[in-house]
């Protein structure tokens, strides 16, 4: 399973590196969202600074939808899905590999977004480790839930509109916990921030487990 996961992740990452879709479309989109938030809230630095964690996580959520759509789009052409299914690769491995590839892209996006809110919204991070741990856990959870629903809606003609409707409510807890943890990390309130990790951690674990268990039947389906 793990070797298969590595193979699939490697394939996806290679495709992304060569096609540069993530670099030239997903990343600029994330930055654009930040700038638009700035327009929506006005130039006053205090309002932006207070809202920064929430805006950051909203941008990450939107990017997750894009990244999962992209992750499924590269399987949609020329019978690739059938190829993947016939290759004898463990479905759980396919799932974990796809999650890893999406997570890697999300990490890259988050690095840029993090720099973005520091530069554009003038925030100062008091507790770095808390922000980093929260981001990592949230990224795993987001990618797992995203890939699961991406697979569910893959191959449907309405997937572009269906996927956000399915994914965004599911990941609402990540938005809540992530932005709370980041608010705490910015102000240095470690104790209250750390308690939010108790939601991010189980969320990631639960969706990884559900994905490993259910990706098989899902792959047969589509």
């Amino acid at each position: 399973m793990w070797r298969d996961a590595l193979l699939v992740a490697g394939k996806d990452v290679r495709i992304e590196l060569r096609s540069r879709v993530a670099l030239w479309q997903v990343l600029p989109f994330a930055v654009l969202v930040l700038v638009l938030f700035g327009f929506a809230l006005g130039p006053g630095p205090s309002a932006l600074r207070v809202a920064a964690p929430g805006l950051y996580w909203l941008a990450v959520l939107f990017t997750t939808v894009l990244a999962t759509q992209r992750s499924m789009a590269i399987e949609s052409g020329e019978g690739t899905r059938d190829g993947l299914r016939l290759s004898g690769i463990d479905p759980a491995g396919v799932f974990l590999g796809k999650v890893a590839a999406v997570a890697l892209q999300l990490v890259a996006v988050q690095v840029v977004l993090g720099a973005g809110i520091v530069v554009l919204f003038d925030v100062h991070v008091a507790t770095w480790w808390l922000a980093l741990v929260a981001s990592l856990l949230a990224t795993v959870g987001l990618s797992a839930a995203g890939v699961l629903y991406g697979a569910l809606s893959a191959g449907l003609r309405v997937r572009e509109t269906l996927l956000p409707l399915l994914v965004l409510p599911i990941v609402a807890p990540v938005l809540i916990a992530g932005s709370r943890a980041w608010s705490a990390a910015l102000s240095g309130a470690v104790a209250s921030g750390a308690s939010w990790l108790k939601i991010l951690g189980p969320f990631a674990a639960v969706y990884l487990a559900v994905g490993v268990a259910l990706y098989g039947p899902l792959q047969e389906t589509a």
Partner: peptide, 10 residues
Amino acid sequence: RRCAVAALVA
């Protein structure tokens, strides 16, 4: 199958 998975995930 698709809907059953979606319901469980939800």
